[in-house]
Write a protein that binds this DNA or RNA. Sequence first.
RNA 1: GGGCGCGUAACUCAGCGGCUAGAGUGCCACCUUCACACGGUGGAAGUCGCAGGUUCAAUCCCUGCCGCGCCCACCA
Length: 904
Amino acid sequence: MTTDAEIPTRFDHKAASTKWYAQWEEAGAFRADVDSPKAPFVMVIPPPNVTGALHMGHALNNTIQDIYARYRRMLGFDVLWLPGTDHAGIATQNVVEKMLAKEGVRRDDLGREEFVRRVWKWKEESGGTIVGQLRRLGASCDWSRERFTMDEGLSRAVVEVFVRLHADGLIYRADRLVNWCTRCRTALSDIEVEHEDRNGAFWHVKYPFADGAGFLEIATTRPETMLGDTAVAVHPEDERYRSLVGRDLILPLLGRRIPVIADAYVDREFGTGAVKITPGHDPNDYEVGLRHKLPVIKAFTDDGRIAAGIMEGASSDLRARTYVGKKVLACRDAVVDDLQAEGLLIRVEEIRHSVGHCYRCKTVIEPHLTPQWFVKTGPLAGPAMKAVEEGRTRIVPEQWSKTYFEWMRNIRDWCISRQIWWGHRIPAWYCRACDGANMTSVSTGTNVESRDEAEPMYILSSHATPIVSAARPDRCPRCGSIDLIRDPDVLDTWFSSALWPFSTLGWPDRAPEVSRYYPTSLLVTGFDILFFWVARMMMMGVRFMGDVPFRDVYIHALVRDAEGKKMSKSKGNVIDPLHVIDDHGADAFRFTLAAFCVQGRDIKLDEKRIEGYRNFVTKIWNAARLVLTEPRPASSTIHPSTFSPEDNWIRSRFARCVTEVRRSLDAYELDKASHSIYHFFWHEFCDWYLEIAKPRLREGDPAAGGVAREILESSLRILHPFMPFVTDELAERMGGTSILDRADFPVAGRIFESDEALIEKAISLVTEIRRLRAEFRIAPAEKIPVFLVTSDLPEASRVIIAQLAGVIPEVVAHKAEWHHFASSVASGVEIVIPLEGRIDLEKERARLQEEIRKCEEQIASSRARLGDDNFATNAPADVVSATRSTLLEREDRLRKLRELFANL
RNA sequence: GGGCGCGUAACUCAGCGGCUAGAGUGCCACCUUCACACGGUGGAAGUCGCAGGUUCAAUCCCUGCCGCGCCCACCA
């Protein structure tokens, strides 16, 4: 028997979480079992970056997953929740580069091999801190199956997919104008560019005609790009310019001779209607250039400086030389100054325009013409779309499927090559013997080695012919040479992420896990990576596994601060989940996140709400203290006939709660599930049941003791997915084992309608009497007589009223001759509290009069509705009959109120 | 430019054709009663963004407008 002294008033969340997590892990409670006879339930974690630390987004995402993992385990499934981390190519390379910079070392100084070795070293020593942080959240991942995207097995999957897609013609290498980050010095895919509206300027510049007769006015937001201009375009039907097409202009500053061309791409309404064409630096201009066979000048270098290429066609290279090597922005100033000096600048207009930034380092993105590897996405997108259309994968909330379709329909080829060193290196080689013409030897670093694992020694043109192969080929299949060099690029991180649902299970090997656990059951993720990740997993899964990667995708909101702003370090509005866990405990935090999970709305996280749910944890704790402190009933089997109405009422209410929680969880409505539990436990079990049952509990009544324990214990089980620590701690104190180990999520029991009605009537009477007491300032301790005018009030109700309203209730069938009383009507019962000498009769008359007036108003509205023939004809029968009975109740209430008023 | 979403109590949000529009927090009053003051009891508080329309009936459906947020998009 546990005594009060052994249970402290407050739950020690720190001690409990440490203790229980260790115990769960030791017991292997999170492990999936491939040989289990149970049905599998599978989730793969959205792998956080190895460089990452737990933020609110992770906390929300993993809390949701853990709730489902624990829920499904309790439903009897063999749950596999597979954890792991992502190598996060650019992000991780940046972190390590920054670290090296502190030692004054650049990656080029180390060379490729050594640099990659250092990244691995960093990963082993400081990477993956988030994995420990997930444990503090309570995440029940199967850690024995933790994966990393650069693991040997996963890397084999990457190579396999690459080789097969290439063989199928779905991966190709070509020259394209790609998004280039001049700081990361790599290409990015389209979705890795973040567009933002910025204030900018629109420079209007004179482009003089070659024959000296006048000029054309050109407007540009990027004057420095004119150094790469090779034409000016006008619309073919633009009357203003029609006669000028075919004439030549002299490009200001450089003196390059460029033609005026006609192309329908030009928007006559915008700017001056004449557009400078820079094929080497604008995707549209590139297309125009192709159509008109314009020369392409690469005006910028990899690191965002002006390239020597601008001197091509220049009349004098003296001026051009002053630009070469300048940073883009510096060059812009120089160009503008020079134009001004030459009188070629007409005016400067203010303009707001969209500017692309690198999603990793926020540097302005420059279009850059380079050979890159692409995935031809069209043939992959079709089947991936169809899978969702056919319902093989369900997206929740459904509205996101529209976004998904929209993106898939407009999908463009995916640039997958990155010019960095950390990542899966592209499995392609080039033969120096027969393909040497397409390579330009360059010396980049200090310790260039002859092996292909060293840093790139060659610039490979788009004409170079790659030999794609899972392993390094022994010799060139064309000429037999052994002089092969490997493609220096690595793959986009998201390429390996796209394979995560099957690469983590052992594919391409025939692992038993692959057949048992694929497709996974549920993917929980934020909408911010719908395109980056979800869509690509769909494409790859359908392509390589012949089935969708997951049955359900639950897309949750983003966590914002209390004002609704995105949390960011620079804004200083970041709430650290680990601090929250320290302060309030993981249970309270998790419950808060679940309660906030309203579909389709962002989460504004206010720490006050966490405090509120921390109080809920304390409430649970104290309710358990009450129940456990009272004597344990002697017998564990209680005969149903000994249950009193309140016992059946609470069992019935719990049954309804269970039904609602299961329904909500199955529908991914975590807010509803958590609210149901919260309301049931606090406002029904604690506020009413325990208060009603207290005297019986003290007496050691077996029914009350049994029911209190039963409901408490079941509540702990239904709460466990949300609050794993406090529930296990209490379950143990109740003499049970960890809830995690038991496949026994509560099942809805019987509903006792008549007991529900009885207790609810008692509750409404208690509430009304309390209200009157408060209104007439009757001291809480004072026991006063109360007359209840009714012919039908069970003894049980009378007892409850006496106990909870602190009154001496007297049930009378007919009203007597009272004169000084406070009164009301609740549940059809007239309540009369004699207050001789303590009541202002005038005030009470006025109060009752007001009650009567309100009641009359309601009756009038009910009557008006029922009096309308159209209502009776058109409204459904149940609505009509419900309106009728409401009217009857109101009329009854009015009658009673009037009687009371007449007697006063 | 296209798409999605949101405007309901002081705040954060539920509800989404038919009860007297709900909850949590905050606020006010009373209560240190033997689980819990991280508590209990009671209370005040809403023209359901605005204007039309559909309907017997609209916070809910439709249209327009106003305000806010997000995503996508190659107008230099």
